[in-house]
Design a protein around this nucleic acid. Structure first.
Lengths: 209, 209, 209, 209
DNA sequence: AATGAATGAGTGTTCATTCAT
DNA sequence: CATGAATGAACACTCATTCAT
C-alpha cells in the first residue's frame, strides 16, 4: 500500500518539509507580503491549521528559510580562504573552485537564493557578514603576497559580493551561464581587470588606488 | 504672511510634492507593504482623501518614484560612453568622472536610490536596461581598443552594475566613503584587477576568459 | 433636514457612544467571549472597521465599560461615610439614603452593573477596594459610638458587599424590589439582626464575635 | 511495579479522574473560554483524542463539574433546617455547625467552588435554588419562634447567600480565615446586627422592616 | 486505551479606498 | 483644497473536534 491511500501527510515530517518547499517557492516568486499562508497550504494540499502545527506563524517559516541560506553562505565563505605557497595557476584554480562551489549551491537552490539575497530584510546583514569574512580572507592573502598591497580589501570584498549577487540573479538563476563560466569570469575580471594590456604596460605607474 | 488664512497646504503642488517626499522616505525605510497610506498622509499633515486628490492610489505614487529614478539612471548611463582617441590617463579620468556623477546623484537622493535599486519590483528590469546600455558602450570602447578584446562585455557590464549597487548601499548611503573614492576604487579594480603585478607579469599568458 | 438622511454616524461621537451602549448590552447579556465584535457593530449599524476607528480592540471597549463602573462605585462608597452626632433615626436614614442612591444607580445601569459585578475579571479587585473603603468608614463609625466595638469591621464590610451584590442581581435587576426597599432591608438586617427579641434580651451576654 | 508496561494512564478511570481534576483547576483559574482542551490534556499527559474518549466535549466536562458542586450544595442546604425546641445557645451552635460544615467543604474544594459560584453560567440558577431552600427553612424557623416574624425571609436568605459567597471568595479561599471563624461571624451578624446595644435599646420600637 | 495528524468554522484586526460635505 | 466618517475585502491565526491507526 506504500504511500498511496495514506492521508496526505500521515508523516508529519513530510508535511513540514513540503510546506517549507512550497513556501520557499512562493516567497521567492511573490515576496513576503504577497505570499499568503492560504496559498502555501494550498500548494501543500493541507488546511490552514496544519500550517500552524509546524510553524509558529508566517514569519517563523520565512525565518527558517532565511537562516538555512544564511548558514550555508557563511560556511561557503569560511571555506574559501586560500592556503600559502600557491602558484598563480593553482591560485586561480583554487579561487575559481570555491566560487564555483558556491554558485552551484545557489543554482541548485534558486528559491532559497532569491529569498536570502533579495527578499529577506536581513539580506543586508548577511551580505555584510559575507563581506567581512571575505575581507579578512583577502587581508590574509595580501599578506601572503598573492594580491597587491595597495588594494582596499574592504572595497574588493564588497565588489565581489556585488558581482556574485548580480550575476547570480541575471546569469545563473536565469540559466544563461553555468557556475563554472561565471566563476571564471569573475576571477579573471577581479585578478586582471579589463584594461588593454598595451595601455596598461605603457602606463602602469600611474595607478593610485 | 503669504499663507495667511489659507489652510496648511493650500497650494496643491506643494501638498503633492510633500506627499511624494514623505512617501519616498517611508518606502525607502519600510518597503512598499510596510508603508501605509495612512502614515504617508500623517507625515504630510494631510487627510487620507487628500492623498487620492493627487495620486490614483498607493501603487501610483510608488510608480512615480520608481520612474523618476529609472529615467535619471538611464540618462546617466547614456552619457557615460567614451569618445575615441583617449589616452590612458584621460580614459580613466573620463570613466571616473561619469561614475562619480552618478554616485553623487545617488548620494543626494538616498530614498529614491533605495527604492529604485532595492524596493521596486522593477529594479530587476531597470538593472537589465542599465546593463544593456553599458554593454553597448563597452563593445564600442573595446572596438576603440581601450579594453581587451577577450573580455565578455556582458559579464563586465553585469559586474559593474553589481559593484555599483553594492557599494552604493554599503559605502555611499551609509556615508562611509565619498562618491569620488568609490568611483576611483571601482575603476581601478575594473581596469587593473587585484593581482600582484609580479605574478601577473610572469604568468600572463595563462589567462583564458 | 436635521438628523434624518445623514449618514448613520456623521457625528463620530455619536457612533462611539452607540457602540459603547450596544457593547455594554451585549457584554452584559452574553459575557465577554460570547460577544463578537461583529455583533456589536451590527447592533450599531456600522461596519467592523468602524469599530476600530473608536476603540483599539475588543478588550479596550470592555475595559472602558469596566472603568466607568469602577469609578462610579468608588465615588458612591466614598460619599457614604457618616458624620458624627447622629441619632439612631437619622443614622438609619443616612445609611439607607447612601445605599439607596447606589442601588438607584445600579438599577439605572443594569448592563454596566452586570459587567462590573459579574463579568469583569477585575470584579474581584473592585469589590476588594469597595470593601476596604467601607471597612474604613465602619472603623470610623465604630469610633463614633454608632456600632458595637466588638464587630469585625472587615467581615461586616465583606458581608455588606456580598448582600448588595446578591440583592442587586436577584431583586434589583430583575425588578422584584425597589432600591428603597432593598436598602431598608439591608440596613435593618445589618443593624438589628433577625433574632427574636425575646431570645435576644434573655441571652444577650452570650455573644462572642 | 504496578504500572509496568502499561501506558501512563492505562486505567481508563484514572485518566478520566485526572482529566476532571486538571480541568477543574484550569477552569477555576482561567474561566471557561480561556481554558483550552489542549491545555487540559497537556496537564493530564494525554492526547487530545483521549479527552473525547471520556467526555463528549468541552462543555460536558464543565457541566460534570458544575453538577458535582450543585448537588453537594443542595445537600448541605437541606441538612441545615433547624429542629424545634432549641435554646438560644444551642440554636446558634446548630446554625454555626451547619454553616461551618458547608464552608469546610468549600475550603476543601476550592476549584469546584470557584467554578460553581463564579464561573458556571448556571451559578445564578444554583444560588436561586439555595435561596429558596433557605427561605423555606427560615419560614419554618420563624414559625418556631426563633426569628422575628417581621423579617422578609426571602431577603434574609438572599443576604445569607450573598455573604457566604463573598466571604468564601475573599476570606475562605484566600485562607485568611477558618471556616469556624467565618461561620461564627456570619451567624452573629445575622442574629444580632451591628448596632450599638445602647442605641438599640433606647430606640428599638422604631424599626419597621 | 491511546495518539499523530489533520481540519471546519470561525474571529479579531488591518488597510486601501471612497462618500458626503 | 480638504476632511470626518465609513467600508469592502482580505488575512493571519485559534480552537474544538475527528479520522485513521
Amino acid at each position: 500500500m506504500a504511500e498511496r491511500g495514506r492521508p496526505k501527510g500521515a508523516n508529519g515530517e513530510e508535511s513540514r518539509a513540503l510546506l517549507l518547499k512550497v513556501a520557499a517557492n512562493e516567497f521567492a516568486q511573490n515576496g513576503y507580503h504577497n505570499t499568503k499562508v492560504s496559498s502555501i497550504v494550498k500548494g501543500a494540499n493541507l488546511s490552514q491549521p496544519a500550517f500552524y502545527l509546524y510553524f509558529k506563524n508566517k514569519e517563523a517559516i520565512f525565518e527558517e528559510l532565511e537562516d538555512l541560506f544564511h548558514l550555508r553562505m557563511i560556511e561557503f565563505t569560511k571555506k574559501s580562504r586560500l592556503e600559502p605557497n600557491l602558484q598563480l595557476s593553482t591560485l586561480k584554480e583554487r579561487i575559481v573552485y570555491g566560487l564555483q562551489n558556491l554558485l552551484e549551491y545557489l543554482a541548485k537552490n534558486p528559491d532559497l537564493t532569491r529569498i536570502g539575497f533579495y527578499i529577506s530584510t536581513r539580506a543586508g546583514e548577511l551580505k555584510k557578514q559575507l563581506v567581512n569574512e571575505i575581507k579578512e580572507n583577502l587581508d590574509f592573502e595580501v599578506s601572503l603576497g598573492y594580491f597587491r598591497k595597495d588594494v582596499d580589501t574592504q572595497m574588493v570584498a564588497e565588489s565581489l559580493i556585488g558581482m556574485i549577487e548580480r550575476l547570480t540573479f541575471s546569469q545563473l538563476l536565469s540559466k544563461q551561464k553555468e557556475p563554472a563560466q561565471i566563476a571564471n569570469n569573475i576571477v579573471n575580471l577581479l585578478l586582471y581587470g579589463i584594461l588593454e594590456t598595451q595601455l596598461f604596460l605603457g602606463d602602469k605607474n600611474e595607478q593610485t588606488w
